[in-house]
Design a protein around this nucleic acid. Sequence first.
DNA 1: GCGTCCTGAATTAACGTTAAGTAGACTGAT
DNA 2: ATCAGTCTACTTAACGTTAATTCAGGACGC
Lengths: 223, 223
Amino acid sequence: MTTIRPSGAPVGAPEDRSGAGTGRSDSRARILRSALGLFARHGYDGTSLKAIAGQVGVSTPALYWHFESKDEIYHAAVEQMLDDFLDAVRGTLRAPEPLPRFRELVAAHVRWQLERREEAGVYAQTMGMRQLAASLSPEQRDRILQMQRSYLEEWRTILARGREDGVFDFADLRTTAFAVISLCEYVHTWFNPEGALSVDAVVDLYVDLALRMVGAELRQEVA
Amino acid sequence: MTTIRPSGAPVGAPEDRSGAGTGRSDSRARILRSALGLFARHGYDGTSLKAIAGQVGVSTPALYWHFESKDEIYHAAVEQMLDDFLDAVRGTLRAPEPLPRFRELVAAHVRWQLERREEAGVYAQTMGMRQLAASLSPEQRDRILQMQRSYLEEWRTILARGREDGVFDFADLRTTAFAVISLCEYVHTWFNPEGALSVDAVVDLYVDLALRMVGAELRQEVA
DNA sequence: GCGTCCTGAATTAACGTTAAGTAGACTGAT
DNA sequence: ATCAGTCTACTTAACGTTAATTCAGGACGC
């Protein structure tokens, strides 16, 4: 268990740093990238600053030039990932009508989860351990909760409109929204990229599953 | 972040130990119970032996009389919880026909996740952090994977039989099985016991959602 | 007087964090 | 064109704390 953490040597090989002599500090971004991966694999407490620094290729105290504390690194990494996720998903939404928009939303969410499988777990961890989320600073917590809430609202709006329009048919709005989102959120826990199914295939299957959950008439793809 | 862990005092009030003068050492069970709750809330690395011991009401080294290491406590707690889960779910299965058996399975899984919300997260954590799971001892890992596999097989069998019988209709067996299981597995992440919906209500809603996913004709309850 | 179940003190290693110093690039004045 | 000075982006050394674990011993029941 403890053997997964570096004891003497860095956990991963330092990144290649040959190109462009430290061109105006990309260090911050590189720290966040390494940190996110390590937090995702080992959790917050399982990831040492030494491991992060080792993977970036700098000494541990160097991190303190870019960030105030381990907490700040963690929060910055999570927030950046959430930003990235929301941008990616919202960037694919084009249709105004509930049914095709719902398809787009499910597809984009699932695709991101599968393509960024490694990092995807961090968010679930943060929100999963309730005390951990509660111990973020109030501003950090509020910003993250705000992003969460607005995303949830996106789903609920689509579901509500679809039901009004008569293209969806489901019992409870809130429960259905949570159910569909959590379905999409946790694809990454079982998906195996070496397996028989491609990302595209799983995306399509999940779109159909989600459509069934909201009571949409399935066979309209070509129409 | 670090403030969630006890620094001087035990994290929770020691349990009441008045009844029955240490009647033939129930200590082991009490340690496991406390440990499971703490692991669920703070994760493996976020939980100290001091915190566990403090909650049980003994000194830290006392744990070493019952267990060899922190790893062993963790593994024993997870395995016991899995045992409990499987017993609870399998104990409710009565119907031999795929459709009612599927209902039973979904209902039992969801009910357990909601009623044991606190502990439910531990398993997800263990399996979520891939390196963590991989660092369990081979025997520990094998036992847990074995339990996982046999449970998954239960689902797949029901789905396959139901499709043969014509009561289910879905595209990909493996994906559908994973999707329905993960749906049930993560109810606890959003459910709020103080909220409007009771456990029973959510169980019913989830049974319907799952039935839709596998393409079952919904309205047969009374028939 | 032996096994069970625990305590208090001690050990070693790792953690996050601070302090102090330094190499290199850029700036402006000479 | 050069040199002092400043800013950036680190370095090594070190601090205080806490972690898991060990050990030597002690109470309590049979």
